[in-house]
Amino acid sequence: MFNARVTMKPEAAKGEIVEIRTVARHPMERGNYPDAAGRMVPRMIIHSFRATYGGEEIFRMELGPGVSANPYIAFTTVATETGDIVLEWTDDSGFTLTRTLRLTVAG
């Protein structure tokens, strides 16, 4: 199971600072400990989160096993022009979840 919710106002004035708030559903299995059967549990975490705006990277986060399950990530960006904000969460399996939000900029 891997899904995500993103909260962001869809419209902003040029130059306004917009907050982007996200929650992703992921166990963030920190691994490296034996399970009940004595087998080592492999690590399986979202290790990277990246945001682009109009194709340019505006924010990146490297996550370690110390980030909680179902992690919350929030950051800001300055509204420059109408365009897509693309968010990508990538986990240890190589899977990337993508969410795209349109930010309409007036003025």
Binding site: M1, N3, A4, R5, V23, N70, Y72
Partner: peptide, 13 residues
């Protein structure tokens, strides 16, 4: 705060 509440991921599912 629904923007932070992880339970909302289940609601969405």
């Amino acid at each position: 705060d629904e923007a932070r509440h992880p339970g909302m991921l289940w609601v969405e599912q």
